[in-house]
Design a protein around this nucleic acid. Structure first.
Length: 224
DNA sequence: AATTTCCGTCGAATTACTTCA
DNA sequence: TTTGAAGTAATTCGACGGAAA
C-alpha cells in the first residue's frame, strides 16, 4: 500500500523534526480516527495556538489566511504564509497515508477538524503529492546512476577482455593451442555472467524502474 | 445519441514567505 | 545582523472527466 512513504521519510522527517512530535504518530492516528468522525470543539484551531507552542507562529504576520472564516479569503490581497501547526501537519499526514487523494467529504471533514479552509486542505494534498513525486524521482535518479556506474564498469571490463583476447590471437603459439573458435560455445565472460545472472537481483534499470512505477501506479489506482 | 457548457480536481510550474545555518 | 539556501504554503494555468442542459 504505502511504499512511497519510505522515500518520503527523508523530506518529511526534516520538516516534522521542526516540531519534534516525538512518538506521537500513534497518538495522532488514533486522534484522527476519532476526530474525523467526531470533530471536537476541544480541537484547537491553528489560530488558537497556545502560547509557547510552535503553532503560535502561524499567527505571526497579521493577515494570516489561517482560520476558517471565508470572508478573509483574499481581502487586501496579501498572501501571508501560514505555518501549519504540529497537530495539523500530523493529522494531514496521517490522512495522506490512508488516501493520497481527497474526496469532497474527507476534505470537508479535515477542514472542519483542523479549522482550515477546504482549499487549504486541498492545497496541502496537492503539495504533498508533489513532494512525494519529487522524492521518488530522486530515488529513481540515484538508482539509475548506480546502474549507469555498474554498466560503465562492466563495459570497461569487457573492453579489457577483448584486448586480452586479441593479444592472445596475435601470439601464434598460444593461439595454436587454443580450441578453435567454432567449438567455443560460450566465452568465459559470458559464461561467468550467465552463472551470475541468477544471483543478480536486478540486472538493468530498465527492468527495475518500471517496477517502481508499476507499484506506484497500482497504489494510486487502489486509492482512487 | 451527440454536443456543449459548467464545475471540480489534478499536476506542473512558479511565487512568496519562513526558518535556519 | 545579514544573507543565502531549503522547505513549504499558496497561486496560476492548462488539461481532463463527469454531470447537466
Amino acid at each position: 500500500m504505502e511504499k512511497e512513504d519510505l522515500s518520503l521519510s527523508l523530506s518529511l522527517s526534516t520538516y516534522t523534526n521542526h516540531f519534534a512530535p516525538s512518538s506521537s504518530s500513534s497518538y495522532f492516528r488514533q486522534r484522527m480516527q476519532w476526530n474525523l468522525l467526531l470533530p471536537s470543539s476541544s480541537d484547537r484551531g491553528a489560530g488558537e495556538a497556545a502560547p509557547g507552542d510552535e503553532a503560535g507562529e502561524a499567527e505571526r504576520g497579521g493577515c494570516s489566511s489561517q482560520g476558517i472564516s471565508d470572508e478573509d479569503e483574499d481581502g487586501d490581497g496579501c498572501r501571508k504564509k501560514l505555518r501549519l501547526s504540529r497537530d495539523q501537519s500530523a493529522v494531514l499526514e496521517d490522512s495522506f497515508k490512508e488516501h493520497t487523494t481527497l474526496n469532497p467529504k474527507l476534505k470537508a471533514a479535515l477542514a472542519k477538524q483542523l479549522n482550515l479552509r477546504p482549499r487549504q486542505v486541498e492545497v496541502w494534498f496537492q503539495n504533498r503529492r508533489a513532494r512525494t513525486k519529487l522524492k521518488q524521482t530522486e530515488v529513481d535518479c540515484e538508482f539509475l546512476k548506480k546502474c549507469c556506474e555498474n554498466l560503465t564498469e562492466e563495459n570497461r571490463r569487457l573492453h579489457k577482455e577483448v584486448q586480452e583476447l586479441r593479444a592472445l590471437k596475435l601470439s601464434p603459439q598460444v593461439y595454436m593451442q587454443m580450441t578453435p573458435p567454432t567449438t567455443l560455445t560460450m566465452c568465459p565472460s559470458c559464461d561467468r555472467r550467465l552463472s551470475n545472472s541468477t544471483a543478480t537481483a536486478v540486472s538493468s534499470p530498465a527492468e527495475a524502474l518500471p517496477q517502481h512505477r508499476r507499484l506506484r501506479a497500482n497504489e494510486s489506482l487502489a486509492n482512487s
